[in-house]
């Protein structure tokens, strides 16, 4: 199969907190050799940290260091055996942290994220993937606000776990406040955005199922806000269904009757995703003008450098980002 440049978009991979497992799982995923069939990957971070990560996993590879953002992606080697990395020197002169929260870790995590965001906004990346960051480090550095966050009506968290895909209407919001924010307008607006982005990703007529808010989807908000919003967008040609009982809706998606579930609140969707724990988890933030994903695991400070961290979630997040950015739909799980 020949693949065109369009099908192999440039994907920026932020290596995450330098003290965590991000660098080593990224190195592992890269050298497994499956990323390049889907995309032209470029790392954003520190070459020294990646050099150390190669040591952790017992591998050698050439590191092609780009120091000028303007040379991305044109200057990348685009080869499995060569790690391409944009390193603008943010860690120069710093001791490399390992297995703990540090101010420098929090600072560079945010700076690298910002670099990736700018390159994506200027069209040099079609997608970005964020390696695991540490909220502890970022709190110490005062950079936690740099993480792309979720604002209802503007941006949404979408979690993927195998066949189960769940977008969330609200995210880090007290349960008490969730019910007040749910309106026909917000649900309709969200369904339109979801439908549009899924089409861009290459799912021609996305089948969206909406979870109800209340037990058995039989409450006031379900009948007065959610159901009318669904009727409204259906009249516009969007294939939305629901509101469906929250205790059975996720099974419907897992069994393939729908492409995605719209959950009303954080735990409604997260419980389903984390409990059924299919392989290939990733998190997508809908909102930026490019495809932005993060890996679904943390920095795992306790196992850093031991060559036991599993790279498959990272690999899956990168390949998923590449597929979606190229309009190829979600990669089918093997």
């Amino acid at each position: 199969m020949t693949t065109t440049q369009q099908e192999r978009p440039a994907v920026g991979i932020v290596i995450g907190d330098p003290a965590g497992i991000g660098p080593e799982v990224i190195a592992k995923a890269w050298l497994k050799g499956q990323l390049h069939a889907a995309c032209r990957p470029v790392l954003i971070g520190s070459a020294a940290v990646m050099e150390r990560a190669l040591g952790f996993i017992g591998k050698t590879a050439t590191i092609n260091v780009l120091t000028n953002p303007a040379t991305v992606p044109a200057g990348i080697a685009d080869r499995v055996d060569t790690l391409d990395i944009l390193d603008t020197g943010r860690m120069n002169g710093e001791a490399l942290p390992l297995g703990e929260d540090t101010v420098v870790g929090g600072r560079v995590s945010a700076e690298w994220l910002d670099e990736a965001d700018q390159l994506a906004r200027s069209g040099q990346f079609a997608a970005t993937v964020m390696g695991p960051i540490s909220t502890g480090s970022m709190k110490m550095a005062g950079t936690l606000d740099k993480v792309i966050s979720v604002t209802p009506g503007e941006s949404y968290l979408l979690l993927v776990s195998g066949p189960l895909r769940v977008a969330h209407l609200t995210d880090h919001m007290a349960l008490r406040d969730v019910c007040d924010i749910i309106s026909q307008d917000l649900v309709a607006l969200t369904l339109r955005k979801l439908d549009a982005v899924m089409r861009e990703w290459g799912i021609p007529k996305p089948r969206i199922v909406v979870a109800g808010l209340n037990p058995h989807a039989m409450g006031r908000e379900d009948s007065e806000q959610i159901a009318p919003a669904i009727a409204q967008v259906r009249a516009e040609g969007i294939d939305a269904t629901g509101p469906m009982s929250p205790d059975t809706v996720f099974r419907q998606c897992i069994e393939g009757r729908f492409d995605i579930v719209l959950a009303m609140y954080h735990d409604q969707g997260h419980i389903a995703i984390k409990t059924w724990g299919f392989s290939g988890n990733s998190a997508i933030i809908l909102g930026p003008p490019y495809t932005h994903l993060s890996v679904a695991h943390g920095t795992a400070f306790d196992i850093v450098g031991k060559n036991i961290a599993d790279h498959t979630m990272m690999q899956s997040a990168i390949i998923t980002g590449a597929y979606l950015a190229a309009g190829r739909g979600f990669p089918s799980e093997k």
Binding site: P246, D247, T248, I271, A272, T275, W276
Partner: peptide, 13 residues
């Protein structure tokens, strides 16, 4: 703490 927090998992499992 509430119906769907507990039942979604149970109904599936």
């Amino acid at each position: 703490m509430y119906h769907d927090q507990g039942l979604a998992v149970l109904k599936y499992a």
